[in-house]
């Protein structure tokens, strides 16, 4: 559905996207995971045929965005990072007006709008003003709007950033439903839990480059041990204690607020720690996540 090779975008001297390669297959849920400024939105705009590339090859639905922008956009659904619903129109009218831009008749727009309001759980809000919606509802309306043209690929740029946990879960539930129906999704996020939840396969991006690629499980297997022990000794002591822990587990990361021990068995590592006579103020054993993968690959956390 999407095929990118050495895809590059420069703004003046600054390279926002630095020669990335990726492929999105039909029915797949593909993710770009990376921190702020990694170049995710820039990539989405190039794929969405609203921003021309500086270099490389890009084909979307078999077409070149440089020459077939309108034809590509006709078959995409786009949920931008920043909502741009029309606050002067009512909820349902937002969908109808948008559908018209795809050349759909008013009758088709109206019928689709009702279906999609139902899907987005906004039927009761059909006649409400956009400004009266909560953040999560606005986001669901934006997703509904992106589906008005029955797109072949749905692109979501940070779908749940800024939402509270409950609203995120409602939204994820809707996206799962789309996945089940075979919709091709392209999602960007800087939340590792979102990437794990939504993506079949993802690329980890940083500074416009791809650091790793694979399914969430494969990435974790490849770049991290199975378990992680998190220890806190107080920010002043962490570094000193870490030196004493040398050799415990596969690898140790010292963060400003805690120490991470990567190990196949968290229990064993904890035992080691207490045998060494060290008493952390808090300790926790958890499964490794994409956050750990990112830390391993870049030396930084996803959310600073």
């Amino acid at each position: 559905m999407v095929h990118a090779q050495s895809l590059t975008k420069k703004y003046g001297d600054f390279t926002a996207v630095d020669g990335i390669d990726f492929e999105v297959a039909p029915g797949e849920s593909f993710g770009l995971l990376g921190p702020n400024g990694a170049g995710k939105s820039t990539t989405m705009r190039m794929v969405g045929a609203v921003s021309s590339r500086t270099g490389g090859d890009l084909s979307v639905l078999g077409l070149d965005p440089d020459t077939h922008g309108p034809q590509i956009r006709a078959q995409l659904g786009v949920v931008p990072q920043e909502d741009n619903l029309d606050a002067e129109l009512k909820v349902r009218d937002n969908l109808i007006v948008y559908g018209r831009y795809f050349g759909l008749s008013r009758a088709v727009c109206a019928a689709r709008a009702d279906e999609l309001l139902d899907f987005a759980q906004l039927t009761e809000k059909a006649q409400a003003k956009v400004d009266d919606l909560s953040g999560g509802m606005k986001r669901r309306l934006t997703i509904a709007r992106a589906l008005i043209n029955t797109p072949r690929v749905l692109m979501l740029d940070e779908p749940t950033t800024g939402l509270d946990p409950q609203a995120r879960h409602v939204l994820w539930d809707r996206l799962f439903r789309l996945k089940e129906q075979g919709t091709t999704l392209v999602v960007t996020t800087h939340y590792m839990d979102e990437a794990e939840q939504l993506c079949d396969r993802l690329v980890v991006v940083d500074h416009g480059r791809i650091m790793a690629e694979g399914s969430p499980a494969a990435l974790i297997r490849e770049h991290s041990s199975r378990e992680v022990v998190e220890l806190r000794f107080g920010s002043t002591r962490n570094a000193a204690v870490a030196a004493e822990l040398e050799g415990v587990g596969d690898r140790i990361e010292v963060l400003p607020d805690r120490i991470l021990i990567y190990t196949p068995s968290g229990e064993d590592a904890l035992e080691h720690v207490s045998r060494a006579g060290l008493h952390p103020t808090t300790s926790l054993v958890r499964r490794a996540s994409l956050e750990d993968v990112f830390l391993r690959l870049t030396g930084r956390s996803l959310i600073e």
Binding site: L147, P151, L154, R177, T183
Partner: peptide
Amino acid sequence: SAPSLSTSPT
């Protein structure tokens, strides 16, 4: 939800 919210890619 309606049976087909978005076209299947096929």
